[in-house]
Design a protein around this nucleic acid. Structure first.
Lengths: 164, 164
DNA sequence: GGCAATTGTTGTCGTCAACAACAATCTTTC
DNA sequence: GAAAGATTGTTGTTGACGACAACAATTGCC
């Protein structure tokens, strides 16, 4: 294999110093098009931005939502258990919980069984709030459907089910 | 709708203070399972880690690879054009190019047409290096196939084609 | 009882997106 | 042709996030 650059759209322009304006969408991506990682990254950015915008009024970001959801569905978990389940570092979870606890959505209860650990629970206020967050998250999910199609979203969830 | 928490797996445990050990994989994700964003995020983390590992010997990260690929396929682009095409902020691209230029993979040529902008080109060394990076990236892509299946990878690229 | 492992915490480092400000340079408008 | 406005690259700041390392308190193991 020689040093030849692209096989797709070489489009060699003037040797150096640029020429005319480029319309930004006529730029070839070359090898990038065949890369799943690139497509997934762009999609993930889009989907997170939509989530953040849709839950903007309640000021909840995707990671916060995931923490609240897991605690809501499994009251009494330790921080270690939550971190491991969500793939978050326990050091990072400390700050996340500090914030959620300040907002009175979560409480850390000293565990009697293991005095090192905290049993995590939603507050009453936290349960009410989470119900609202879930409604907004469902709305966000409809945006995803509108964007890629209902069937494609289903297929996507199916393909990536192993990573949850 | 009442304040009731989860409909899937409530699994209420002792009022407070936790009980027995949780095996970390028996923790329900509840609403998270139906969220495309969560699955996509987890998958994106996996795929980037594999990319970084596979291209570890040559010390190239996904974003660097995308920049090199686009410049290679479209020599003479301005920083603005590259940033816009890849969805990178131009402020961020400055540092990326500083690094790539120090490594003699990319050169910034002062554009004669517009003296504000730089025309971006791969160096001869950069072209050779990129060819190698592409071979390693193809290897990474095979890892993705092994993970989710050849057909699923194709379908994924198809579903997300609109985001590239 | 003593030693290793675990849990929460604090701190540092590097990546990355989002902004804001700025000088140099183009483009538009009068 | 000159002033006003927009664009380009650059620098800097902020905040979310992942990866690590160290530490005190506590538990489990032998």
């Amino acid at each position: 294999m020689t040093a030849g650059a692209a096989q797709a759209s070489p489009r060699k322009r003037a040797g150096n110093g640029a020429a005319r304006r480029i319309d930004a969408d006529e730029i070839g991506l070359d090898a990038l098009v065949g890369h799943a990682g690139y497509a997934v990254r762009r999609f993930q950015i889009w989907i997170f931005q939509d989530f953040i915008k849709t839950l903007g009024n309640v000021d909840i970001r995707p990671t916060q939502y995931s923490v609240l959801t897991v605690i809501g569905a499994n009251p009494g978990l330790s921080q270690m258990a939550v971190a491991k389940r969500l793939g978050i570092e326990r050091a990072r979870l400390v700050h996340l919980l500090d914030s959620l606890e300040q907002r009175k959505l979560v409480k850390r209860v000293k565990s009697k069984a293991d005095r090192r650990s905290h049993a995590l629970h939603l507050t009453a206020q936290g349960e009410i709030a989470l119900a609202k967050f879930k409604r907004l998250a469902a709305e966000h999910e409809r945006h995803v459907e509108d964007k890629i199609g209902k069937a494609n979203r289903e297929r996507l969830l199916q393909i990536l089910a192993g990573f949850t």
